[in-house]
Simulated scan of single mutants.
Amino acid sequence: MNMTELKAKAAQIRMDLLNMIHTAKTGHTGGSLSNTDILTALYYRVMKLDPANPKWEERDRFIASKGHSVESLWSILADLGFFPKEELLTYSQFGTRLIGHPNNKVPGIEMNTGALGHGLPIAVGMALAAKRDQKSYRVFCLMGDGEQAEGSNWEAAMAGAHYKLDNLVGIIDRNRLQISGTTEEVMGLEPLEDKWAAFGWNVVSIDGNDMEALVEALEAVPSVPGKPTLLMANTVKGKGVSFAENVPHWHHHVPNEAELELALSELAATLEGLKQEGQVR
């Protein structure tokens, strides 16, 4: 996909996840909207994947450590054909596979996540296995910024640098909000980039809602031989829906009928503008 197509796809994924959350009457709206651009760049441009063969040995691995923001991931996996798109209507319903966190009963999901701080340690193990087995696949792990208060992340950071895992990419969805307020009020993180650099990682800071910047940074991996990369993706919580952006209440707010209609109209306008550029298939 070219850049215009990626931006259009991100707008469509945002519409899909909002419909899914509204139908289910539950979900983590703000974080799913903020990470949509990251996941779109990964799944439609950067990662080696085969939806027809989800266990392909050479596939790149993705771990959603911030598992609660799963709605964007479910929408993308369905759109790519890992499972039927109609199944999105069952999200969080009784008996569904599509629960409120990644579930490895679903094709395309490497591991169950949800307990914050667990994703990066597993990603380190996967990347180390690739090195020892002389495999070329890369491992991408998306973390929340509130999740950086978990000590297990820092143990994993030490291990990733110690084993020189340049096939490992940690991505922090740095939207600066968590369920109970701003990250700096709840548990101060700054200087976060300096901390990761001190742990031996190559740190790249970008606008995490800028598709060009995301693709450039992600396609450069491994950018420093012998070092894992930490992508500090500075995002806006609730991105794409004007009245949800940077509003803590939208962490897990379910849009009502009027809010859904307004949000979808904003995203439809974004999508139409991109289509008028003439490069969207």
Rank of each mutant, 00 (worst) to 15 (best):
K105Q: 15
S32G: 10
E71I: 01
A78M: 11
G119I: 07
E71A: 15
T90F: 07
H101I: 02
S32D: 08
T113E: 10
S32R: 01
T113P: 05
A41E: 02
L73Q: 14
A52V: 08
I99L: 12
G117N: 06
D79N: 12
T96I: 12
E57M: 12
A64G: 09
G81R: 12
V106L: 08
K66A: 13
G67H: 09
G30K: 01
T36L: 03
E57V: 14
D50Y: 06
I76M: 07
L33S: 06
I38M: 00
H118N: 13
G81S: 09
S69F: 13
L39E: 01
P54S: 09
E110C: 02
H28Y: 07
R45G: 03
F94D: 13
V106H: 06
L33P: 07
E71P: 04
W74Y: 13
P121N: 09
K66H: 06
N35A: 15
A115S: 15
L89Y: 06
S75E: 07
T26W: 07
T26D: 12
G67D: 08
A52S: 14
L116I: 11
K105C: 09
L88D: 13
N112S: 15
I109Y: 05
I99K: 14
G100D: 11
I38N: 00
V106P: 03
N112Y: 10
Y43E: 03
L39K: 08
E58M: 08
D37Y: 02
L77D: 05
I76R: 11
H101A: 11
S72Y: 03
E86Y: 12
G30P: 05
A64C: 14
A78Q: 04
I122F: 14
